[in-house]
Amino acid sequence: MRIDIEDLHVAYAGRTVVAGARLVAAEGEITGLVGPNGSGKSTLLRTVYRHLRPSAGRVRLDGTDLREVPPARSARHVAALPQERETDFELTVREVVAMGRTPYKRAFAGEDATDRDIVATALSDVGMAGHAGRRFTALSGGERQRVLLARAFAQDPDVLVLDEPTNHLDVRHQVELLALLRAQRRTTLVSLHDLNAAASVCDRLHVLHAGAVVASGRPREVLTPELMAEVFGVRAAVVDHPLTGDPLIAFDHRDPAAPEADRGPDGTEADRGPDGTEAAVASGTGPPGPRRGWRKEWRRGPRRG
């Protein structure tokens, strides 16, 4: 399935957090959202998994406005791993993962053989098969992260929406997770802070800044030294990864280009919405567009397809 986000606006308390975002998550591709803290990544993803309603614009699932799809039906198509994750389940690991089968079950219906096989596969995929009987609350942060990802896999969705899925994971499990996402080839919309991970795993990237999409394209097209300086406020060189050939971003930790990297392009600071989420707010007037001096190709808007 394909996700189309069309002219999306999201506001908190009358202040615009996402402003006119347009992007596509093509079927079978991994589409990444990157950008500084407060750029609107999590807010945009929340509209896709229906935690938030946009104030304008729409999200389309294979051409159908998501607002017209019953929640129970959309849950069979879209599974999410949000940042605000449940941590108080008084359930076993297996029981938490089995919750992913809920959209397919009638009230009070028990598990069948298909459910059990899917849950077992999901646990194996994230390396938690040997922990099925443990209490979720007894797990480490990284282990909980993998269990919640397994729950999303058990939902057997057409679309995965993942908000910082590598948080709390050690290096090995980060690498394994990214390899798993590549192998699954589901339509995936994922936000990542690690730009090198994004360059490695994503087929296409959309860069958000102050609530607007300011660059879109293949990772090698988007992740340039100029964009690193303008959007992230750092000096960087982009070279070929010696093992994979992917773009590899080397940051200059001794001489950053812009000390005020956490500020928006008009100098305003990132703020937070009323639910505690990061939101780029420009004094109540909504986020500005890209700087006029930005390169022309950054201002074309996202490419289709």
Rank of each mutant, 00 (worst) to 15 (best):
Ile3Met: 05
Gly14Trp: 03
Arg15Ser: 14
Ala21Pro: 09
Arg22Phe: 14
Ala26Phe: 01
Gly28Arg: 03
Pro36Gly: 10
Gly38Asn: 04
Ser39Cys: 03
Gly40Asn: 07
Leu52Asp: 06
Pro54Asn: 14
Pro54Val: 14
Ser55Thr: 15
Ala56Gln: 07
Leu66His: 03
Pro71Lys: 08
Ala72Ile: 15
Val78Phe: 14
Ala79Lys: 08
Ala79Arg: 03
Ala79Ile: 02
Asp88Lys: 06
Ala98His: 06
Gly100Asp: 05
Pro103Gln: 05
Tyr104Ala: 07
Lys105Arg: 15
Ala107His: 05
Gly110Cys: 11
Thr114Cys: 07
Ile118Phe: 07
Leu123Met: 11
Ser124Ile: 05
Val126Gly: 00
Ala129His: 15
His131Thr: 02
Arg134Leu: 09
Thr137Gln: 13
Ala138Phe: 01
Gln145Gly: 04
Val147His: 13
Phe153Met: 09
Val159Thr: 13
Leu160Lys: 13
Arg172Ile: 13
His173Met: 13
Arg185Ser: 13
Arg186Asp: 05
Asp194Pro: 12
Leu195Tyr: 00
Ala199His: 01
Val207Trp: 09
Gly217Ile: 02
Pro219Asp: 09
Ala229Arg: 11
Val239Pro: 00
Asp240Tyr: 01
Pro247Lys: 06
Leu248Tyr: 09
Phe251Leu: 15
Pro265Arg: 00
Ala270Asn: 01
Asp271Ser: 13
Gly273Leu: 09
Ser283Thr: 10
Arg295Gln: 15
Arg295Asn: 02
Glu297Asp: 12
Glu297Cys: 02
Arg299Asp: 10
